[in-house]
Amino acid sequence: MHNFDFAKPSTIADAAKALAADGAQALSGGQTLIPTMKQRLAQPTVLVSLTGIKEMQGVCMGDGGLHVGAATPHAVVAKEARAHYPALADLAGGIGDPAVRSRGTIGGSIANNDPAACYPSAVLASGATVVTNKRKIAADDYFQGLFTTALEDGEFVTSVIFPIPQKAAYVKFNQPASRFALTGVFVAKFASGVRVAVTGAGNDGVFRWAEAERALSADFSASALSGLSVDPAGMISDLHGSAAYRANLVKVLTGRAVTAAG
């Protein structure tokens, strides 16, 4: 690790100021950033911790649904979102291990937008709103490919607002080593229709499976998927699974998520 300065502002405004400095980078749970720095693959000159900002912490119901502060650790979401949005709580409770869940945060996860991360699927399937220090971004506009988001320089996530679906479930198939999602599917049924978001599988990161959404909006049952198939083109192929395998998982897990959602 190279040397760096450290700042821990207590307001969003101060954080924005600190992040404007040359070479400054946001630090949330540090579960991705710190290992990267240890390997000397990132060398920020100032680390700006977002974990001291009260408004960025915690889970509560509010306008538009469930508000989750960007610096809220997964373990807190797993516990406190349960009464309001059990599928989201389940997802949070299945990330990594207890240590990772105690430190890692939703803001860090969706800012990083790892193609195998769990949260992006919930944000996208829920049609959530990503709130930043500058604006509100619809989930459909926010995720822009591998490790790429709509966030601009100096912009950071402050919270995420989740509309609450009637039914929802997340089913994750573990990558055998990292236990991130080799493929994960989040299905959310709203009065207006069903949204299906897939993580871990797509070459361009999290995506919605439109065909399944149409079929499930008409008939919310696993059997509604039987005639569908997923095109392996555009799927990730790596050491742990071919594109064809992932395409199969997308379909299998979507069916299981529908069943789990009840």
């Binding site: 198939f173 055998p176 080799l182 742990h240 699974g241 071919s242 064809a244 395998y245 199969n248």
Partner: peptide, 13 residues
């Protein structure tokens, strides 16, 4: 070996 999920699925299919 390893008889991993993707290998088993590929063998079946």
């Amino acid at each position: 070996m390893p008889v991993s999920p993707s290998r088993v699925w590929s063998a079946i299919n």
